[in-house]
């Protein structure tokens, strides 16, 4: 299952989420939105707003599910960790 994470390089929740995925050997694609520039950044922000309805980070996409924030229980459930 493809897993996508939108994160900010500075955000503690994003670090906690990534650490949790890493510790469990989960492979995922991550975009650090604040490190992008110009049109690329605008596009990523627009995508996050479209998917999550807001501008809170991280946004974790697992299959059809969108998780906003570090929700360990939900990630664990979806990935059967």
């Amino acid at each position: 299952m493809a897993i996508k994470v939108y994160a900010l390089s500075t955000c503690p929740y994003c670090r906690m989420t990534r650490r949790y995925l890493d510790e469990n050997g989960v492979e995922y694609d991550v975009t650090e939105v604040d490190l992008l520039e110009g049109e690329e950044k605008e596009a990523a922000v627009a995508e996050v707003k479209r998917i999550s309805g807001g501008a809170s980070f991280p946004v974790v996409i697992i299959g059809d599910e969108v998780i906003v924030g570090f929700n360990k229980a939900r990630i664990k459930e979806l990935l059967s960790l």
Partner: peptide, 24 residues
């Protein structure tokens, strides 16, 4: 302390203590 540490990094990069969890 983790959050404030992140804010200090942002302060160094941008000149102000922006929220580490929001995009500017």
């Amino acid at each position: 302390n983790d959050v404030l540490e992140a804010e200090l990094e942002i302060l160094e990069q941008t000149g102000d203590v922006f929220c580490p969890c929001r995009v500017r």
